[in-house]
């Protein structure tokens, strides 16, 4: 009797599994790929086996931030003028593995849009490697297009893709229209706000520069907070000296 009951419930579980499987739209991507083999680690694999894909993606993204925030002797650009203490964003370090790290994070968790947009922005607007940024964003967007979702997903990635494509074709100053939309999102990286503020500053559009830079005054990143304060003070001085001359 007990075995018969067990068999009945087993068949019911197989049927229900098949029914649930019909609605299961998500298909994970492999943990390992030759596209990012230089930064692949077995730790991802172990976390995934225990059902912690998101934790694995979080850890890899933090590793990416650590990589992007440190100076690597073997990746110093030839003829770089920047001082070592000035760190990233100065052209001192090439950060050759940044794309691989980003791809590893994105492939681990296909829902991690912040990791994709943050690294794409860094690749395109700081490291001047638009092609890699476009490849990263396309990888994420194509994946979700393939899932045929009923609701739009990864909208910000599409926005960044447009902005970076325009940057590549016409220069960064032409991409402000898309970057303006990007900074309205609460999870927009402070780096993007800093870049947009800098574009307006260079174009002598001080009103917009102040508006965007003020967003970074309460940034958690002391570097962006300092840059925003310094730039705002500079704008203030320029405006005062301009008024005195007139």
């Amino acid at each position: 009797m007990k075995l018969a009951l067990s068999a009945v419930f087993f068949i019911a579980s197989v049927l229900m599994q098949a029914q649930a499987g019909k609605h299961f739209t998500f298909r994970n991507t492999p943990v390992f790929s030759k596209d990012f083999s230089e930064v692949a680690r077995y730790s991802d694999f172990w976390l995934v086996l225990f059902g912690h894909r998101r934790i694995a993606a979080d850890i890899v993204f933090i590793q990416t931030l650590q990589y992007y925030g440190s100076i690597h002797e073997d990746e110093i650009s030839a003829g770089a003028k920047a001082e070592r203490r000035e760190g990233f964003g100065t052209g001192l370090v090439r950060y050759d593995k940044l794309f691989s790290y980003a791809l590893r994070t994105a492939r681990l968790d296909r829902n991690f849009e912040y990791a994709v947009t943050f690294t794409a922005a860094a690749l395109a607007w700081v490291q001047k490697r638009e092609n890699e940024a476009i490849a990263l964003l396309t990888d994420a967007i194509d994946y979700w297009d393939g899932q045929k979702m009923t609701v739009p997903v990864f909208y910000q990635s599409s926005l960044y893709l447009s902005a970076i494509a325009v940057t590549k074709e016409k220069g960064i100053a032409e991409a402000t229209e898309y970057m303006e939309k990007a900074v309205t999102y609460p999870d927009c990286p402070d780096m993007v706000k800093n870049i947009l503020g800098e574009i307006y500053f260079r174009a002598k559009d001080y009103k917009n520069a102040v508006r965007v830079l003020e967003m970074n005054l309460d940034s958690r990143e002391p570097n962006y907070r300092r840059k925003a304060i310094e730039k705002l003070e500079k704008i203030h001085e320029l405006l005062i000296s301009g008024q005195q001359r007139s």
Partner: peptide, 14 residues
Amino acid sequence: RFMAAAGYLPAVLY
């Protein structure tokens, strides 16, 4: 984003 709403009940019953 991993499963359509209609899949939750069969998953629980499974």
